[in-house]
Amino acid sequence: MSKPSFFSRTRGWWRSHEAVLLVVLLAELVFFSSAGRRFGTADNFFDIARHSTEIGLLALVMTPIILTGGIDLSVGSLLGLCAVVFGKLWRDGGCSPGIAGVLTLGLGTLAGLLNGGLITGLRLPPLIVTLGTYSLFRGLAEALTHGADTFTDFPASFLFLGQETWTGLPAQAWVLMVAAVGFWLLVHRTTFGRAFCAIGWASEGARYAGIPVRARVTLAYGLAGFVSGLAAIIYTARLGQAKADAGTGYELFAITAVVLGGTSIFGGAGSIHGTLLGVAAIGVLSNGLVHIHQPREVAGMLTGFLLLLALAVSVLPQWLSSLAIRRRAAQGSQSSPPSTP
């Protein structure tokens, strides 16, 4: 009984999806370092970190949502709305960047809770609800700026967050790291994370186990709103401007990174470290292509290819082992003596 059997052992780490992705990432790094002369410099890695932070934050917060079997298409639009509101509060409202930031985070959280409330309260599918708020938030951002207004000339003390380094790393990279550790603990070390997975595997089963399903789902979307606000502030600080089109398409990059990282789109299984690897693989790819003088469109194409490849490679070992078993079984039955003369 106590002897560990094949099934009770966890899968070997080299077979995991994360390991496949790590190999892909290392291959990218080796390839681009040899092909592009300035790719391997510290400055360039800082650049990758700066460009990946916002999508990284969105991918982190997308992970628990996808674990519950949901999806949030509105995070990119919410980023745009929060960026515009932040700009307006600072320029027209007379708030300091700090106060404007806190208010923006509050707005983001409320918007996320709106998603969560609609999904759990009205029992609407997350895809439909966030498709609606995807348009709603972007439309609000455009209405606030009449489609043209751009907020610029932020003080240097604020731009520091997006453009300078702090204790050796880009300032926003620290934010991403803190968020990564926080989300990793939340998902992998607390009952909250386990609740997300349980809901993703069997939402009714979780309810029958006494798990407060609605509260947990609402929490996941509320967190997404808060982090979208945070990403909006960092985005504004990085570019030094806030426009209504900020973060367009980011929701799809975030979802791609999460799925690339091995999280099942049906919910239940997945990991934060996988998501981080997914973000890195995408970030390094799009940066590296610039260094080997490839046009931007190629990045999109290759990201799609990477996603399909990673998915295919991760199911390959399973497929091979089942094939081997079949073959062995077939040989076994042939070698056994025939039953009838």
């Binding site: 070390r189 607390t190 009952t191 909250f192 386990r194 997975c197 349980a198 595997w201 069997a202 009714e204 089963g205 979780a206 029958y208 186990a209 006494g210 798990i211 239940g268 299984a269």
Partner: peptide
């Protein structure tokens, strides 16, 4: 199969599922 156990989760996780607040104080596993 639908409500009694979560088939895709380990036995151990299934067995503690109803006692989270007391078994995992502060939500830490």
């Amino acid at each position: 199969r639908k409500h009694g156990v979560i088939l895709d989760m380990p036995i151990a996780a299934n067995l503690t599922m109803a006692v989270w607040p007391t078994f995992f104080p502060g939500a830490w596993l």
